[in-house]
Design a protein around this nucleic acid. Sequence first.
DNA 1: CCTTTACGGATACTATATATCCGAAATAGA
DNA 2: TCTATTTCGGATATATAGTATCCGTAAAGG
Lengths: 165, 165
Amino acid sequence: MMQLKNQVEWALHCCSVLAALPEGKTVPAKVLAEFHGVPREYLAKAMQGLAQAGIVAGTLGPTGGYRMAKDPSDVSFLDIVEAVEGKKSTFACSEIRMKNPCMTKQERKCVGERPCGIAKVMWDADEAWREHLRGVLLSDLVAAVGEEVPSEVLVKGEAWLNDRC
Amino acid sequence: MMQLKNQVEWALHCCSVLAALPEGKTVPAKVLAEFHGVPREYLAKAMQGLAQAGIVAGTLGPTGGYRMAKDPSDVSFLDIVEAVEGKKSTFACSEIRMKNPCMTKQERKCVGERPCGIAKVMWDADEAWREHLRGVLLSDLVAAVGEEVPSEVLVKGEAWLNDRC
DNA sequence: CCTTTACGGATACTATATATCCGAAATAGA
DNA sequence: TCTATTTCGGATATATAGTATCCGTAAAGG
Ligand code: SF4
Ligand code: SF4
């Protein structure tokens, strides 16, 4: 099916929340999970991925939780996606040419050294995908949310968060 | 892991073989599988996908097999990829906003009707990927193979195919 | 008539995604 | 100091999708 894990969607949403937070404030995974209606333990794994990538920072203890580790204008969609999904190409080449029964060992080696037309096209397509995600920043998302979501809803959400962390 | 099925690679290779074939000639799935060193029955499923998409045509009976159903300059990489992989977007949106506990039913509906910033970015990235694959034709691949692969290897492969169909 | 082929459905096996659980270390507050 | 809370990493279980095989049917050629 070639689908991104659902953790990617969650991570993007969580980042958009954290990026809009006042300086110094932290939100624990438990609250983020309840806010988005997703399983706490599994979301925690995604947050750990973001933390390892240096996008968010987790602080321990009561009053602990997550906050942004970078400026939102310095984090791209690609950074977030790759932090939880990994950086592997969508096209896995199994070096099928090497199995061709009508080539000698030497010919296999020769062909194997040359760049492959098929793989190049597929990898370039991946790169076009990444390039598009690289071009959109977390700050853009925050701005879009500010415009698209009614302010009363934003205020209510903020109050809800303040209420539990 | 977000990877294309290996059938995609096989399908691309098979198409590059079929597209280089002399007019009227057909190659059965059994031979294509042996030529690429992949399981026959599973490759057959991919070929059926290509046939359903109208890219190749299968003919029954002895001396039967597959041939191109379209001109190679009229078939894009995207056509082949989508024929075996499907057309679904890599980003599946689970309408997470609807689960937010601090919104009323009415507000959920309102937000749900507006275009979503996150989904739009992800879908646009997919479209950039598709656009790149749309731009490369099967005829381009055939030409590249003709240039990259030593002619003696091509001749040997042709002879190998002639030998069994 | 017999063989070969594509085709479609059913089935088994394997890898990945999804989800949960636990113990350890850190930290804030009583 | 003690307790509660949190992140973190590893281990484990379950569900789903990818991989692979099998079989019966229909069509076509020799
Ligand atoms: S020809 Fe290209 S796509 Fe095929 S196996 Fe080789 S490198 Fe991979
Ligand atoms: S906000 Fe966008 S990405 Fe998130 S659930 Fe809604 S449509 Fe999907």
